[in-house]
């Protein structure tokens, strides 16, 4: 039976068809899906911050793009995905509150998106779809049967990328 697996903030899950992975209410956070269309194996990571430079040893690695992505990649490969076939889709990275004097921390969504793309490129994984920026929240869901990445919003409807 197809199950819906929930991915929390600063968390990741991997799985295979016919499961779906979902993460609710992303603001400046980014939901990154990895998917191998042939083995129908994939994962979803919900990061909060671009890099773990200031992290403490006890910190949860799934909170950061630079430490979370390698972890998820490793688990997806263990499930039988082929790295050369893996493709990534990303969504999120909004700035929820508009301040005229927005500080760096307010723009963390943009920095998240940039960092994720850079890291994926370094890992040799293609980003084939992206829905980032704006000032609204998103709920993201990857269907591991089809690889369709569904992005739901409150005022702007739903789209698949």
């Amino acid at each position: 039976m197809a199950s819906l697996i929930r991915v929390g903030m600063a968390d990741y899950k991997v799985g295979r068809s016919p499961s779906s992975l979902i993460s609710y209410g992303l603001g400046s956070c980014i939901g990154i899906s990895l998917y191998d269309p042939q083995s129908k194996v994939g994962g979803l990571l919900h990061i909060m911050l671009p890099d773990s430079n200031q992290a403490r040893a006890s910190d949860n690695p799934a909170k950061f793009a630079d430490t979370g992505l390698p972890l998820m990649l490793n688990d997806v490969l263990k499930l039988g995905a082929n790295k050369a076939r893996l493709v990534a889709k990303i969504a999120g990275g909004a700035q929820m509150f508009a301040f005229s004097n927005a500080t760096d921390i307010m723009k963390v969504g943009t920095r998240n998106a940039e960092a994720v793309k850079k890291i994926l490129q370094r890992m040799g994984i293609r980003v084939i779809a992206e829905d980032t920026g704006g000032n609204y929240g998103r709920t993201v869901q990857i269907d591991l049967d089809t690889g369709v990445y569904r992005v739901k919003t409150i005022d702007r409807g739903e789209k698949t990328i």
């Binding site: 609710y24 603001g27 400046s28 909004a94 929820m96 929240g137």
Partner: peptide
């Protein structure tokens, strides 16, 4: 002010 999903709005302080 923003009207949106609770998770998305809380992101701002949690980040």
């Amino acid at each position: 002010l923003a009207m949106d999903m609770a998770g998305a709005i809380l992101n701002v302080v949690l980040v």
